[in-house]
Design a protein around this nucleic acid. Structure first.
Lengths: 239, 239
DNA sequence: CAGTGGTCTAGACCACGGG
DNA sequence: CCGTGGTCTAGACCACTGG
């Protein structure tokens, strides 16, 4: 048994201490570890970064290192596809911030867009998903523009898109196809998520129908931060 | 627009060059980057590590840095739950290595174990999943011991567990519940996966029934390396 | 054996946050 | 303003891989 490296030993010891520490608690700073463990700053830093890679802590420049909490975000057939409801169910405070609303023609490259537009235009909504005030994801939603006139006026922060579309326009959306994978986003999405560089993130894609019909009503995709959200996917059989 | 850090600029430039490079190709070493870009070794190293975090390259001590390929591993209702078949379908060479077979009593702590044992014992199989010879995951499978007498003699490397159970014992397994999430494994699992320290990995849990009955026939869980496997989960509605 | 990546040191400057 | 984390340098020793 070879001895593990100094920074991993240190990280493991810190991880043990953090097991029962409530979220938000401050962790020793790099210089404090230098003083208390007689290691160089780079070694102390490597240990704290190791904890960050394990989703245990969050590091904030100028402020410090803090214990992090991950939210269980469950996706299954039986759960309504609503960010707000799902986060609230997990015991955290959800929020959203509107980034942009854009009207444009459907692009035939994406086969679903003409079908959603249904002979008319496309309205594309982009927003940030927040958990306890922290950016947890970026949502882009593609909707039928002609069916949702004046959508811009109704939109704002902390809205539920599906509720709005249902209550104001009488269009109810129903899950049709859902797909999720782990991948590395582009620079611009990483920027929106607050990451300096692209990090592996959840990519969730949804195709929803207008309830009771076979008409496509929405296509959306979301990049979510795995540090904040611990997604759970469930597939169940009947019987 | 603030200037990005040196190592990220370097990483982005290298990532661009790697876009159309075939898997297995060698990437410039740390010292080569030091010589060619006039940076310190730590900066060159940070750039290469950045690429590793983006799943673009694999770094091997004593050997070098190489372009990596990720396998699409799709899980959906309509696809048979077989590692071998799924990997082969993705165009890669699957393999498995038997780690251990153990017989024991069911533990009532896990409610499914007595149900699987069905009044008898439990047989627990552990194996490594390989993709192109590289460790991609660790599988642990819990099966009814009394129904599979002499299972040990039939097991070996590069076997399909479900095929064996079906052909030798006439027990066909059918998907019942499936759950997947991203989490950080324990030290021992990280060791088996070849990681020095625990890294975020896929955790896939399966509960399967004996075909045509409501009898539980298998419980299994797999830790998979996201660097090798790019899981895709699909949920589809009927109609 | 030479070359690779993994670790560690001591020291420096910077950007940022909060009192 | 001070303390935080983020970056960078120069130099060193190590473990491992391959010819």
């Amino acid at each position: 048994m070879t001895t593990r490296s100094t920074y991993l030993e240190l990280a493991d010891r810190l991880a043990d201490q953090l097991r029962d520490t409530p979220p938000g608690t401050r962790v020793a700073s790099e210089y404090e570890l230098v003083a208390s463990h007689g290691v160089s700053r780079l070694t102390a830093r490597a240990a704290l970064q190791e904890l960050e890679h394990r989703y245990l802590v969050q590091r904030v420049r100028g402020s410090g290192t803090f214990v992090r909490r991950r939210i269980d975000y469950t996706i299954s057939k039986h759960i309504v596809p609503s960010f707000t409801a799902t986060v609230a169910a997990a015991g955290a405070r959800p929020g959203t911030r509107l980034l942009s609303v854009r009207r444009r023609d459907p692009e035939p490259v994406h086969s679903y867009e003409p079908e959603i537009a249904d002979g008319g235009s496309i309205v594309e909504v982009r927003r940030l998903n927040l958990v306890d005030g922290e950016v947890a994801g970026v949502l882009t939603s593609v909707l039928p523009g002609d069916r949702l006139p004046g959508l811009e006026e109704h939109l704002g922060d902390d809205f539920s898109l599906h509720t709005l579309v249902s209550q104001v326009y009488g269009v109810q959306l129903q899950r049709y196809r859902h797909q999720v994978l782990l991948d590395v986003p582009d620079r611009d999405v990483a920027d929106l998520l607050g990451d300096e560089a692209p990090r592996p993130c959840w990519y969730a894609e949804s195709l929803n129908r207008v309830k009771g019909t076979t008409q496509l009503g929405e296509y959306s995709y979301t990049w979510s931060n795995p540090h904040v959200i611990r997604m759970v996917f469930q597939i169940e059989e009947e019987g």
